[in-house]
Amino acid sequence: MAGFGGQGIITAGKILGRAAVLYDQGSAVLTEDYGPEKMGGWSKADLVISEKEIRYPIVDKPDVFLAMAQDGFDRFHETLRPDGRALFEKGLVHPTREWKRKTSFIPALKAAEELGRKVVANIVMIGALVELTDVVTREAAQKAILDSVPKGTEQLNEEAFRKGGELARGGAS
């Protein structure tokens, strides 16, 4: 998962990892990487989710690639497995013409703005990711969101999660 600092990419990684480990009783390892800038630099969360113990924590060839910024696409799109799935923020990521992978474009930022806070765009993306893949269960993701977000924002984040699922189901593109 890649994007810009401030978009909540690493938070998204933490939420999905918590969901896998604490609520789906699986294994997950999250590693983070980011540019040297204090604000607005590139940011990446690598997440391995498995039913078995994870002995090698590095993500070389992801099965799922989520990008919320063009820079994230540019840097990491070549790593996605040929049969992998991509989720891109619709307004911010524009793949090259050669891009042929199974891809969903999710207008997460627009949806978040309509909900009143664009910071929840990452939660909209998680909603879409959970809808389109089986990395974690819906229930686990919901619980992990609730215990990760600031108090008082639970309802907003639940809305954002639900909206993401809806956009994905509607075949947003």
């Binding site: 480990v21 294994s27 997950a28 390892v29 999250l30 590693t31 983070e32 994870i54 924590p57």
Partner: peptide, 9 residues
């Protein structure tokens, strides 16, 4: 660094 900065169970 790997063990110290990875997040897991």
């Amino acid at each position: 660094q790997i063990i110290a900065q990875m997040t897991t169970k």
